[in-house]
């Protein structure tokens, strides 16, 4: 078990990717600290995890500075440290032409996708630096490397995350903490089902075909395929890897 007794904190833990990650890291022996703002979903996750009682579940809003500080402090009190932090909180935001997005929505996407990652980083990194060891992972998206019509808000914040990740990685190089991002293609999830519906409200299947048309492999990415990369990057096997974007996209950005 590669993460035996390692403290792994996952934010947005009750989402599709967060759930897959929680199960996978638990299989590797990790002590999990699972954060999500949706208490009900977090309770469901607790029931799904085979050894749910070994994990700490904290309902909290990662956009709120005080709440983030509180759960990081609580984690250190209970478990002594944080070895791995994985930021999975994110939304697609409005799917419409750039000029039709209200500044309110733009701010909302920014807060949810970037500010959350920043706050978690801000409070977790001193804990890791003290022990000169740790790994932080951001979940960006292929739209952090390219544009897509009607996704300007999501593309903006996905790019922003990579900018933050690279600079943070350089801040950390001498302190033993590695910072990387995973860059997945659209993943099979409730989020994508919503997108399909927004694209073609009368015929979501057309929306799906349109999105799959962008993917050379002709299928969505599965959450389980992202977890393997996260596991690799968080492990000692990737000890020379920092400041990079790990692309999992079935050839989408090769186009």
């Amino acid at each position: 078990m590669e993460f035996q007794d390692k403290v792994v904190m996952i934010t947005g833990a009750a989402g599709v990717l967060g759930t897959a990650l929680s199960k996978r890291f638990q299989k590797e022996g990790a002590l999990l600290v699972l954060i999500d703002k949706d208490k009900e979903k977090l309770d469901q996750l607790a029931k799904q995890l085979p050894n749910g009682s070994d994990s700490i579940f904290i309902p909290a809003d990662c956009r709120d500075d005080e709440q983030v500080k509180l759960y990081v402090d609580k984690t250190v009190d209970l478990l002594g440290t944080i070895d791995v932090l994985i930021n999975c909180v994110g939304i697609y935001g409005p799917i419409t032409q750039a000029s039709d997005i209200s500044s309110h929505y733009m701010m909302d996407v920014y807060e949810t996708n970037v500010v959350t990652s920043f706050l978690n980083y801000k409070y977790a990194v001193p804990v890791m630096q003290k022990r000169r060891s740790g790994c932080i992972l951001f979940v960006s998206a292929v739209f952090g490397l390219r544009g897509l019509p009607f996704f300007s808000a999501y593309s903006t914040v996905s790019h922003a995350l990579l900018g933050f990740m690279k600079s943070a990685a350089l801040d950390c190089v001498t302190s033993g903490v590695r910072v990387n991002a995973v860059v997945p293609a659209p993943m099979k999830s409730t989020m994508m089902e919503e997108v399909e519906e927004i694209l073609y409200p009368d015929n979501p299947i057309r929306g799906r075909e349109q999105i799959l048309g962008l993917l050379p492999m002709g299928r969505y990415l599965e959450a389980d395929e992202v977890t393997e990369s996260v596991l690799f990057l968080a492990s000692d096997r990737a000890r020379y890897i920092t400041g990079t974007s790990h692309i999992i996209d079935g050839g989408m950005t090769a186009k």
Binding site: M217, Y240, T242, A254
Partner: peptide, 20 residues
């Protein structure tokens, strides 16, 4: 097989060299 959706990519191992 763990990387079965990783295709057409460049896997960077550079300790932040390209982040600069």
């Amino acid at each position: 097989h763990r990387a079965k959706y990783i295709h057409g990519t460049s896997h960077i191992i550079d300790d932040g060299f390209l982040a600069k």
